[in-house]
């Protein structure tokens, strides 16, 4: 079979315009994409892939029912070959994913990449941030140890203070009055079914919008270009290898703890959610319940519709780069609140 024959064999059976398909791969992208710190959007995507792969492996053994949930994780950790590694990567992958989503947002924010005509994509991005946080929250509760059990309890309890519908939301999240087997099954279902679906749809729209708009220019004067494939893809692959190296190192040096089996009858002395909720938890502990919740809600609202708020700022205080100052302040405050909460007993 000659090369031509081979080609016609495939094009006959898969009548697709390959030239057209290759077009987006060859798209020129700005030169700054060569640097990984300007390519942070791709990092959460790589991490998502790692999370999906390790997550599927974990479901081979995980049992979403108390107290077997805890026992099955102990089994993964201690008995399953490389189970500790897979779990360690999944744990640290989640942590890095949230971190890199933040960093990506930060970069987009500081460089004003959300501005016209990319406002919608910022909105989608905020949706992806929420989905990532929801992934973390539901995933952590699946461990069913003392800390995760009580973190789930206080985490879901936050919604109780939502005006009017609070108790209803709480009962829906928990599947009853308390965190029980019902909570575990619905969190599992959300974690491995609902959230991945939502995430993939949002991501598809996010990337599609990115491609039709093109990557935002940092410096209009810089006309240098690289090709998406292979130049940028290779950068991302290198980032991927580094990530695996970092994740494996973290899994070995700081293996995720298993803790004690959840005991709904024994409230630990100090209850805390996972670290990425520390800033908001600190805030909620500083102010009364409903005030805290409404405040946090307002913050999220402004964050979500930031492009519109930014438009107003630009109109009122042109050329002041107020958004950069404000964003940096918020970033520093969030980091400080996180560290503060970690050290408060």
């Amino acid at each position: 079979m000659t090369a031509n024959e081979r080609k016609s064999f495939w094009s006959e059976r898969l009548p697709i315009d390959w030239e057209l398909l290759q077009h987006p791969l060859r798209e020129p992208v700005p030169y700054h994409m060569n640097f990984w710190w300007f390519a942070l959007g791709g990092t959460p995507l790589i991490l998502l892939g790692i999370q999906v792969a390790t997550g599927i492996l974990l479901t081979f053994y995980y049992v979403p029912s108390p107290p077997e949930a805890y026992e099955s994780i102990r089994y993964i950790q201690n008995v399953v070959p490389f189970g500790w590694w897979i779990r360690g990567i999944h744990h640290w992958g989640a942590t890095l994913m949230i971190l890199t989503v933040w960093l990506h947002m930060l970069r987009v924010f500081i460089t004003g990449a959300y501005r016209r005509p990319r406002e919608f994509n910022w909105l989608i991005g905020v949706g992806l941030l929420f989905a990532t946080l929801a992934f973390g929250f539901t995933g952590y509760s699946l461990i069913y140890n003392q800390l995760s059990y009580w973190a789930t309890t206080v985490g879901t309890n936050i919604f109780k203070d939502v005006p009017v519908v609070g108790p209803l939301i709480l009962s829906f999240l928990r599947g009853g009055l308390d965190v029980t087997a019902n909570t575990l099954t619905r969190f599992f279902s959300v974690h491995i079914g609902v959230l991945p679906t939502v995430m993939v749809i949002l991501l598809a729209v996010h990337v599609l919008l990115l491609r039709v708009h093109g990557v935002s220019e940092l410096d209009p004067k810089d006309t240098r270009r690289i090709v998406f494939f292979p130049d940028h893809v290779l950068t991302e692959i290198i980032v991927g290898f580094y990530l695996m190296l970092i994740l494996t190192s973290l899994a070995i040096l700081f293996p995720p703890p298993l803790g004690e089996l959840a005991n709904p009858a024994s409230t630990p002395l100090h209850i805390k959610p996972e670290w990425y909720f520390y800033p908001v938890y600190r805030w909620l502990r500083l102010v009364p319940g409903t005030v805290g919740l409404v405040g946090a809600g307002l913050f999220l609202l402004v964050l979500t519709f930031w492009p519109a708020a930014d438009g107003l700022l630009e109109r009122w205080f042109p050329k002041r780069d107020l958004s950069v100052v404000l964003g940096s302040l918020v970033a520093v405050t969030v980091a400080a609140a996180m560290v503060w909460e970690a050290f408060v007993v």
Partner: peptide
Amino acid sequence: LVIILAILFAVSLVIV
């Protein structure tokens, strides 16, 4: 600024 804030976040995260 992006680099400084990124490092700040990473360091906070490592500490926590």
